[in-house]
């Protein structure tokens, strides 16, 4: 019953949704990279998260994006267990040598139409790890990237804003 009490006392913690980014309707969105939200994906995007060598900073932010406060799920986003179920890959970290092949395989395993979201500076340009002996390169060096989310780590609202571009909600 304590759980029940807690539920009642806490109530809703999700912050009200910010204005939907204009990107979906606005063809001139100059500061945003990435493609149009694909029609079949509208309103529902399943994400498969791939940690290609991250320091886990991005992971924390992703986790809080799907937490109660930011509640990414309300935009039709969901993390799933299998790339077969996914529409987009959420890739974090510089791609290490050992993770390059798995990343490629994961991309292969994802059914079309598929999108790749590179999350964080490391994913975009290897960040501080650039040139490291164990680093293969940025995500874009391994698989084509559709959406880039800069930041070290990117904050949840940035992340969600980018992902909302995929769902169109």
């Amino acid at each position: 019953m304590s759980v029940l009490r807690k539920i009642i006392r806490t109530g809703r913690v999700a912050e009200s949704a910010p204005q939907a980014p204009p990107a979906s309707a606005d063809a001139e969105g100059a500061d945003r990279s990435g493609p149009e939200p694909v029609a079949p994906l509208s309103g529902s995007v399943q994400l498969r998260h791939v940690d290609a060598g991250s320091c886990n900073g991005c992971e924390l932010e992703i986790a809080s994006a799907f937490g109660p406060v930011y509640d990414a799920e309300r935009y039709g986003l969901r993390l799933v267990a299998s790339p077969r179920h996914a529409d987009a890959l959420l890739v974090t970290g510089p791609v290490t040598r050992n993770m390059a092949d798995p990343l490629r395989k994961t991309y292969e395993a994802t059914p079309a139409p598929r999108r790749v979201v590179a999350v964080g500076d490391c994913a975009l340009n290897c960040g501080v790890f650039a040139g490291g002996h164990g680093v293969e390169g940025a995500v874009a060096d391994v698989i084509p990237v559709d959406v880039e989310v800069p930041g070290c780590p990117p904050t949840p609202d940035v992340l969600i804003a980018a992902l909302r571009g995929l769902t169109g909600r």
Partner: peptide, 12 residues
């Protein structure tokens, strides 16, 4: 249907 290698969690 596309025939793909079974998903082995990225394994070799």
């Amino acid at each position: 249907r596309r025939v793909a290698q079974a998903w082995g969690s990225g394994g070799a």
